[in-house]
């Protein structure tokens, strides 16, 4: 579904990532780890076409990103749910409207979809917060709302960038549980995190591949994790 082949990415004259090859097969679970500034977020952005590689190839659903225009990338992104650490909401819209935003932009704002939205709000435990504005939410609520928005289009792949960065242990376990559930539904999950305890907790529940970015390159993490 998402495939990176010998990808390099340079910015401001320096190379951030070198010779990265990665394939995200259906229903697989991956962690991407590494120190702060190693390039985890950059790699995730390459995976959903927000950045274009300066070398190698990124293929989204068998199409080379460099051959796609902005609209084609945007349409491909409807099959990829993205959860950011800072959530990226539109603060003037309610939680429900933010979660439904992918439906609105893809013209799928039907009655059925609204029913799914209510179900989804219940799944992430935000039924009572549907009309609240994003700034009124706690950190955990924001992350759950971001996850709900990422999955509302029933994407094939979910990419999460430090999804538990701003929440306590209990909430991070709850978010992890939601992501594991999604994986069991057949979704491919890639989580960028430096939270090793989260990785250990996940490995007790799913078979997860742990990748590490070190010295601009991607490698399989050791078995100590």
């Amino acid at each position: 579904m998402i495939e990176l082949e010998n990808v390099a990415y340079s910015y401001g004259g320096g190379e951030l990532l070198t010779d990265i090859s990665l394939g995200l097969a259906p229903a697989t679970f991956h962690f991407l780890t590494g120190p702060s500034g190693a390039g985890k977020s950059t790699l995730l952005k390459l995976c959903y076409g927000a950045l274009r590689p300066t070398g190698g190839h990124v293929r989204l659903f068998d199409r080379d990103v460099t051959q796609m225009d902005r609209d084609a990338v945007a349409i491909s992104r409807r099959r990829i749910g993205v959860v950011h650490q800072d959530c990226q909401f539109l603060d003037h819209l309610s939680v429900a409207e933010n979660i439904a935003l992918p439906l609105a932009v893809s013209g799928q704002d039907s009655a059925d979809e609204r029913a799914n939205l209510r179900e989804l709000l219940g799944w992430v435990g935000l039924t009572g917060r549907a009309d609240a504005l994003p700034p009124e939410l706690s950190g955990g609520e924001r992350q759950r709302a971001a996850l709900a928005r990422a999955v509302i289009m029933s994407p094939d792949v979910i990419l999460a960038d430090e999804p538990t960065g701003n929440v306590d242990w209990e909430m991070s376990q709850r978010l992890l549980q939601l992501l594991v559930e999604l994986n069991r539904m057949g979704k491919t999950i890639l989580i960028a995190t430096h939270d090793l305890s989260l990785i250990r907790a996940a490995k007790q529940q799913v078979q997860a591949r742990v990748l590490r970015i070190s010295k601009r390159r991607l490698q399989l993490a050791g078995t100590d994790l």
């Binding site: 902005r70 609209d71 349409i75 992104r77 909401f89 539109l90 932009v105």
Partner: peptide, 9 residues
């Protein structure tokens, strides 16, 4: 944000 959720130009 709109681009993130798949909005076209």
């Amino acid at each position: 944000v709109l681009r993130l959720v798949g909005a076209t130009d």
